[in-house]
């Protein structure tokens, strides 16, 4: 190729790169200033970035099982712990990894709770890889994540569903009726090599940021099994990361399947989440050195949000679970 030709190609790609960088910066800025214009999944990223720097002590990560089981506002009210649900519906392990990376940009949590359901997702190595590329692109080049924001700007619509530090109030009851699901066995469930790799990356990421990691399984008759329990125990033994299976403590938690289930034993509803949170709060204060920030002026906004949360819970409960009670598109796949 002639030098002149080379210069031309260089210039072409330079302009292209500049365009992409510019669009990415613009998208990032717009997403931060107008989170209500984002669609659900993207909203999580942008809201997380809006949190005050270094204000969160506990991150709850994973798929929909994670954010359906822990209510940060209840943790705050009763224990003064600042927690945030960073899980997303249907999130795969590489998604969890990049979500954590995003969180670590502005936060330095003491503890990361990783819900185990995401570990057992297996769309196949190829799909995992494809989704990984999408996550990476979205992480490093935000225009790929926020590219369709223009749609809501054109229509003027807002897609903001109120969340309380990542938690959504869902009061619907759809009982689980099929009885005991933790049937003891020696066998354990296999996980994909891709998940193993990303689990290790998550462990290293948490180490690098000085955050302790804890695995847990939210109560979920639809998803959890003894085989999964065994696998997570194995992982715990191999890595030294503690594992807490709440499915083995249903009585202790006082979970009643005819009132605490959102959708027939898949996810917990508000009442289930509150029970888990109450129990977990005691457990966490007992096991970890988590500061109680109540009364600290720096955290006054948490108290303000708590008032809103209480009001919303009251309204929702009074309204009686209506048909409109939302279940996310991908919640169902979780």
């Amino acid at each position: 190729m002639k030098p002149e030709g080379k210069r031309r190609y260089f210039l072409f790609f330079l302009i292209l790169a500049a365009g992409i960088v510019l669009l990415s910066a613009g998208a990032e800025l717009l997403a931060r200033t107008n989170p209500e214009r984002l669609r659900t999944r993207n909203l999580n990223y942008s809201l997380l970035k809006k949190e005050k720097e270094n204000s969160i002590d506990v991150l709850v990560a994973g798929d929909s099982e994670s954010y359906s089981s822990v209510s940060p506002m209840d943790l705050w009210e009763k224990f003064g712990i600042t927690a945030y649900d960073i899980g997303q519906s249907g999130q795969q392990i590489q998604g969890t990894y990049y979500m954590l990376k995003t969180a670590f940009q502005t936060q330095s949590p003491k503890l990361v709770l990783l819900e185990g359901n995401t570990i057992f997702r297996n769309p196949g190595e190829l799909k995992y890889f494809e989704n990984l590329l999408l996550e990476e692109l979205g992480y490093y080049v935000p225009v790929f994540r926020y590219h369709n924001m223009w749609e809501t700007f054109v229509t003027g619509e807002r897609d903001w569903r109120v969340t309380y530090k990542g938690f959504k109030i869902r009061t619907k009851i759809d009982p689980y009726m099929d009885g005991d699901y933790m049937v003891e066995t020696e066998k354990s469930k296999d996980i994909s090599p891709f998940v193993e790799k990303y689990l290790k990356k998550i462990i290293r990421l948490c180490e690098a940021h000085g955050a302790e990691l804890m695995l847990y399984s939210a109560p979920s008759p639809k998803n959890h099994t003894f085989k999964r329990h065994n696998k997570l125990m194995e992982i715990s033994e191999e890595t030294g990361i503690p594992y807490l299976d709440l499915n083995m403590r249903i009585d202790e938690l006082k979970i009643l399947w005819d009132e605490d289930s959102l959708d027939g034993g898949d996810h917990l509803n508000l009442s289930g989440a509150v029970k888990v949170t109450d129990w977990l709060g005691d457990y966490l204060t007992d096991q970890y050195d988590l500061p109680d920030h109540r009364g600290d002026d720096q955290y006054a906004d948490w108290d303000a949000l708590l008032v809103e949360y209480r009001k919303a819970v009251e309204e929702e409960t009074a309204e009686d679970a209506s048909d409109e009670d939302e279940t996310d598109e991908a919640d169902l796949e979780a």
């Binding site: 669009l23 984002l38 993207n42 979205g138 225009v143 994540r145 590219h147």
Partner: peptide, 8 residues
């Protein structure tokens, strides 16, 4: 990149 129906 902008108009494609991919992602969220």
């Amino acid at each position: 990149i902008i108009l494609g129906a991919y992602g969220a």
